Deep mutational scan, measured.
Amino acid sequence: MASQGTKRSYEQMETDGERQNATEIRASVGKMIDGIGRFYIQMCTELKLSDYEGRLIQNSLTIERMVLSAFDERRNKYLEEHPSAGKDPKKTGGPIYKRVDRKWMRELVLYDKEEIRRIWRQANNGDDATAGLTHMMIWHSNLNDTTYQRTRALVRTGMDPRMCSLMQGSTLPRRSGAAGAAVKGVGTMVMELIRMIKRGINDRNFWRGENGRKTRSAYERMCNILKGKFQTAAQRAMMDQVRESRNPGNAEIEDLIFLARSALILRGSVAHKSCLPACVYGPAVASGYDFEKEGYSLVGIDPFKLLQNSQVYSLIRPNENPAHKSQLVWMACNSAAFEDLRVLSFIRGTKVSPRGKLSTRGVQIASNENMDAMESSTLELRSRYWAIRTRSGGNTNQQRASAGQISVQPAFSVQRNLPFDKPTIMAAFTGNTEGRTSDMRAEIIRMMEGAKPEEMSFQGRGVFELSDERAANPIVPSFDMSNEGSYFFGDNAEEYDN
C-alpha cells in the first residue's frame, strides 16, 4: 500500500510504541512475548500442572481467558453494579484439565481477579502490559475465525453469508486497541457500523446529549479505520460520505453494504499476525530463551520457528480426527482463516481442507461434555516452508469459486491468482447506482469489472525454506488448481455463540 510509510507498523501498534527502528520493534515485541511466557509459567505453578498438562491447549485457553477477564475493567465495573446470582464479580476462573488415573478430569478453578492481575503485572515488570493482553485477544479471535462461520451475524446486519472472507476479527472485544483495529476485516468494521446506525434509528437519543457526542466521535473513528483499509480513492470518498452524514440511517447502511461487497474484489488491507497460545510461549521462556534479547516478529519467520520446536497437546472428542484438529489450530496460529487453501497447503506441506470436510468441533470443551471418553493427542503445528504475512489485500483475480465463501483475504505475501467468483459478486451490483453516491458507485463498479483474471497478485513473492531466515531465496510455489480455494466452501461450520 502506498501510504505504508505514514502508518505505524503493526509491531508498533502491538507494543504501543512511538516510531521505533526494526531492532527496537523486535525487542519490544519480544518483551511482550516474554511477559506472556513468564505469566503462563507462574500460572502453571499456581495450578500445580504437570509439564504435559501445561502444554494442553484447553488449559492455555482457560488461563488466557482468566487474565483477560481480570483486566476487563468495563465488564468488571458492570458486574459490580449489576450483581447477578451466583456470579462473584471479583473472581474469575474456568475449567482446568488434569490427568488422573490414566483419565482426563475437569476441575473448575476460581481465583481472585486481583490475584491474577498481581501475577500478570509481576510477570511483566510491574506494568499492565496491555500489548500482551491484546495479543491474547487476537489469538482467540484468530481461533474463532478458523472455527466458526459468522453466517447468522452477517444475515442479521443485512449482509450476504458468502462475504465471510471479510469477517476477520469479528469476535475481537471493543477494547483491543490499535492492534485489534489493524486485524479487523472490512466486513467486521461494516458490521460494527451498521449495528451502531441501527441503534440510532431505533433509539432517538442515541446521537443526542453528552453521551451522543461520545457516540458520534466513536462512529467517526470507526469510519476512519474502515476508510484506511480501502485502497481505492472511490471507496475512500464513499467512506467520507458515510462519516460526514448528519443523521446516519438506511442510506448509510446501503452504502456500507455496497462497500463491503466491493471489497470482495477491490480488497481492503487487513493486517495478519501470528499470535500463538500462551502454552507455546511459556515452555520456550522456561527453556531459557530470551525473546527480548533475541527479538521477535509476528509477521516473519519467528512464529514458524517457534511452532517448529513446540509440543502442544489437545483434548480430542471420541469421533474427532486429531489431524483435522491440528489443521484448525495451525490455521489459527498463522492467522489464515480466509487465505486461499492452495497457498496454505503449499506452505504447510500437507493438504489443507475446507472447514466442512474437517471432523472436528471447536477447541474448547463445553462444561456439560462427558470427560470419560476424552483422549488427548499432539497437535501437528509444523510447516514445510515459511512466508511473510501481508497486510495488503493483493490485486484481484477471477477463479472458480464456491457456493460458500466467494473470495479470499490473503494472509501471506505469496504470488498467486486470487480466487473470487466474479459473476456471483457482480450480480449483486445491478441497477442500484442512484442517489448521492452514484458517481462513486459507478466508478467502483467500473474498477471491479476491469479486474483481470490473468493478473498475478504479489508478483514474484515466494515462500522460503525454514533454514532461509533472511528470506534470501524465494520459492514461487505451484498450486494444484483442481483443489478448492475457499475454506468455508459450501460450508456447515458451527455458528459462533458468545
Rank of each mutant, 00 (worst) to 15 (best):
S3I: 11
S3D: 00
Q4T: 11
Q4F: 15
Q4Y: 15
S9A: 15
Y10W: 00
Q12A: 12
E14H: 00
T15G: 00
D16F: 03
Q20G: 00
Q20C: 00
I25C: 00
A27C: 01
S28E: 02
S28V: 00
V29S: 07
K31M: 12
M32W: 04
D34P: 00
G35L: 07
I36R: 06
Y40I: 02
Y40V: 04
M43T: 12
T45A: 06
T45I: 08
E46R: 11
K48W: 03
L49H: 03
L49A: 13
D51T: 15
R55G: 05
Q58W: 08
Q58C: 05
S60G: 14
I63S: 02
I63P: 12
I63C: 14
I63D: 15
V67Q: 05
S69K: 05
A70I: 07
A70R: 03
D72H: 08
R74N: 08
R74V: 09
R74M: 12
R75E: 04
N76T: 05
Y78I: 07
L79Q: 10
E81N: 12
H82W: 13
H82K: 09
P83N: 13
S84G: 14
S84D: 00
A85L: 09
A85V: 13
P89W: 14
K90V: 09
T92Y: 02
G94L: 04
G94E: 11
I96H: 04
I96V: 15
K98A: 06
D101N: 12
K103Y: 01
W104Y: 09
W104K: 04
R106E: 09
E107Q: 08
L108N: 02
V109W: 03
V109C: 15
L110F: 09
L110H: 06
R117N: 03
W120M: 10
Q122A: 04
A123C: 14
N124T: 04
N124E: 10
N125P: 03
G126F: 03
A131R: 02
G132D: 09
L133M: 12
H135M: 13
H135Q: 12
M136A: 09
I138Y: 01
H140K: 04
S141T: 10
S141G: 14
N142Q: 07
N142P: 10
N144D: 06
D145T: 09
T146G: 02
Y148S: 05
T151L: 05
M159I: 12
M159R: 02
M159Y: 02
M163V: 15
M163D: 01
S165Y: 04
S165C: 13
L166M: 15
Q168A: 15
G169N: 09
S170C: 05
P173S: 12
R174F: 03
R174H: 04
R175M: 12
A181K: 03
A181I: 00
A181Y: 07
A182L: 05
G187P: 08
G187A: 15
T188I: 07
V190H: 02
M191C: 11
E192K: 12
I194F: 03
R195G: 05
G200E: 12
I201V: 15
D203L: 03
D203M: 06
D203P: 03
D203S: 05
N205F: 03
F206A: 09
W207T: 00
R208I: 06
R208Y: 05
R208H: 02
G209P: 03
N211G: 10
G212P: 03
R213H: 04
K214A: 12
T215I: 05
R216F: 09
A218Q: 05
M222H: 07
C223Y: 09
I225T: 14
L226N: 09
K227W: 08
G228D: 04
F230R: 02
F230T: 12
F230Y: 10
M238Y: 00
M238C: 08
M239F: 01
M239R: 01
M239W: 02
R243D: 08
N247A: 13
P248T: 13
P248D: 04
G249S: 07
G249Y: 09
N250V: 10
A251L: 15
A251D: 10
E252R: 04
I253A: 09
F258A: 05
A260R: 00
R261V: 04
R261N: 08
S262I: 06
S262Y: 12
R267C: 08
V270K: 07
K273C: 03
C275M: 07
C275D: 06
P277E: 04
P277G: 08
G282T: 07
P283C: 10
A284G: 02
E292L: 14
K293Y: 12
Y296G: 03
V299Y: 02
V299K: 11
V299S: 04
K305S: 09
L306C: 11
L307R: 05
N309D: 01
S310I: 10
S310P: 02
Q311K: 12
S314T: 14
L315Y: 05
L315H: 07
I316C: 15
R317C: 08
P318Y: 08
N319S: 12
E320P: 03
E320K: 11
N321H: 09
S326M: 11
L328E: 01
L328F: 04
L328S: 03
C333S: 15
C333E: 02
N334D: 08
S335N: 10
D340R: 02
R342K: 13
F346N: 06
S353E: 04
S359Q: 15
T360M: 02
R361M: 01
V363D: 06
Q364R: 00
Q364H: 08
A366E: 07
A366S: 15
S367G: 14
M371Q: 05
M371P: 04
D372S: 11
M374Q: 11
M374N: 08
S377A: 11
E380F: 06
E380W: 13
E380D: 12
L381K: 02
R382F: 02
S383K: 01
W386R: 09
R389F: 07
T390L: 01
G393K: 04
G393I: 02
G393A: 15
G394Y: 05
N395H: 15
Q398V: 09
Q399S: 05
Q399P: 13
Q399W: 06
Q399H: 13
S402I: 01
A403K: 14
G404Q: 11
Q405S: 07
V408H: 08
Q409T: 15
A411Y: 00
Q415A: 15
R416M: 07
F420S: 15
D421R: 02
D421T: 11
D421A: 15
K422I: 01
K422H: 14
P423L: 01
M426C: 15
F429M: 10
N432M: 09
E434I: 10
E434P: 12
T437M: 01
S438W: 07
M440P: 02
M440E: 05
E443A: 06
E443Y: 02
I444R: 04
I445M: 04
R446I: 04
E449N: 15
G450M: 09
A451Y: 15
K452F: 14
K452N: 13
P453Q: 13
P453H: 15
P453V: 05
S457D: 14
G460I: 00
G460N: 04
G460V: 00
R461D: 03
R461M: 07
G462T: 03
V463T: 07
F464G: 00
E465I: 01
S467A: 01
D468A: 02
N473C: 12
N473H: 12
I475S: 03
V476H: 00
P477A: 05
F479H: 11
E484N: 12
G485Q: 03
S486I: 08
Y487E: 01
F489S: 05
N492I: 04
A493K: 11
N498G: 08
